[in-house]
Amino acid sequence: MDGNSIKAILFDLDNTLIETYRAGELAMQKTHELLKTSLALDDDTITNICDKFMQKLLQQKFDPAAGRSTDEIRVGHWEDSIKESVDSCSTPSLAAQCYYMWKNGRLELLKLSPKISDLLKQLRRKYKLLLLTNGISQTQWEKVKAVGCESFFDRIVVGGDYPEQKPYPSIFKVCFDLLQVEPQDCIMVGDSLDTDIQGGFNAQVRATVWVNSAGDAVPDGSVTPDYTLSTVLDLEDILAQLN
């Protein structure tokens, strides 16, 4: 690494700055209870329905099908999950209730902790900050609005608004151009080795910082981050080394 100072920090959002996994789990617990009350089925069957929905969600492409909104598609995921698990007639009303209970419940729980808010305020006095998040455009912008994090960043880039997302270099080029910086002026901070760290490596940023709250080992064959932290709150220690 050369002696030039870092000028910009690119942050991932989900499970880096906000606890999306945890919020989703809590929202799903409430949805589980709604299904159990509505269908009068055992916990295993209800869990199976919820698991099917999550599988469909993970397999969903970033671009919604022509003529259907993301919400409509995801209500359909719930309806299909119920039909595949329960021998009953169509349940569009219940499917919609499940989806909006899960969606709105998750959004209500998403927030920046006071400590992370303070960290971002301090960092922005010294660096340009950009939020770079993968996902369907509607979904990610809803999270950004729910969290209220726009004021903490110079720019926000949602991958679903572009042809390619992390780890492709093209989305990072968009970020560099928006901030008017070079790759070596930046670090990438995120929780995903496959998208955040691999993406930073592909884009040739100065350094990659893996937020590894679970304390997992880097899997064989995976890209190796330059730095690993258990929490993003320790980022200033890394910046002190780099500068």
Rank of each mutant, 00 (worst) to 15 (best):
I156D: 00
Y168E: 15
T16C: 09
N48G: 08
D196H: 07
L109K: 05
D237M: 08
V174W: 04
G24V: 08
V181N: 13
L94M: 02
Q204A: 12
E236Y: 05
K83D: 13
G105S: 02
L123P: 08
G159C: 09
I18C: 03
V223M: 04
H32L: 07
D154G: 03
N48K: 08
R155K: 05
T37H: 10
D191P: 06
P183M: 04
A207G: 09
L132K: 02
T70Q: 08
A8Y: 13
D43G: 00
A23M: 13
Y21F: 10
L239R: 01
V218K: 06
G67Y: 06
Q165K: 13
P167Y: 13
E236S: 07
P92S: 02
P167D: 14
V223H: 07
A214V: 11
G221P: 12
D118H: 06
R155D: 10
E150R: 11
L34G: 00
D63T: 15
Y227D: 06
G67R: 05
Y100K: 09
E25W: 11
L35W: 12
N48T: 12
D51W: 07
L109R: 10
T133E: 06
V209L: 08
S38M: 10
I73P: 09
E25T: 14
C175A: 15
C149W: 06
L131A: 10
N202D: 10
L112A: 09
T228Y: 06
T45F: 03
V75H: 11
R74Y: 15
V189E: 02
Q59R: 15
I187A: 03
G24A: 04
A96H: 06
L94I: 01
P219R: 12
T228W: 08
W210R: 02
I156L: 03
E72W: 03
F176I: 09
D234M: 00
M28I: 07
M54P: 02
D14G: 00
C50R: 04
K166T: 05
A203W: 12
S88N: 13
G200D: 14
L235F: 08
L109M: 08
K103V: 03
K36M: 10
A66S: 15
V147H: 02
G215W: 14
S81N: 06
D185F: 13
L130G: 00
M1E: 03
F152P: 05
S113F: 06
Q140T: 05
Q180Y: 12
V158Q: 04
D87Q: 15
D177W: 01
D194K: 15
L107V: 03
S69Y: 12
D191T: 13
P114N: 12
I136R: 07
G76A: 04
D177P: 00
L13K: 03
K52P: 01
N243F: 10
Q204L: 07
V158L: 05
G105C: 02
E150N: 10
I116G: 00
L123D: 09
D63F: 10
S69G: 15
S222W: 14
L57T: 11
M188I: 07
F11C: 07
Y127C: 00
L17G: 00
A27S: 08
E72H: 08
A95Q: 06
L35A: 05
R22I: 12
N212S: 09
I136P: 01
V157F: 06
Q138N: 14
V211F: 03
R124W: 12
S192T: 07
L193W: 03
K52N: 03
W102P: 06
F172K: 03
V75C: 10
H32Y: 11
T16V: 14
F201K: 11
L179Q: 04
G190Q: 07
P225E: 05
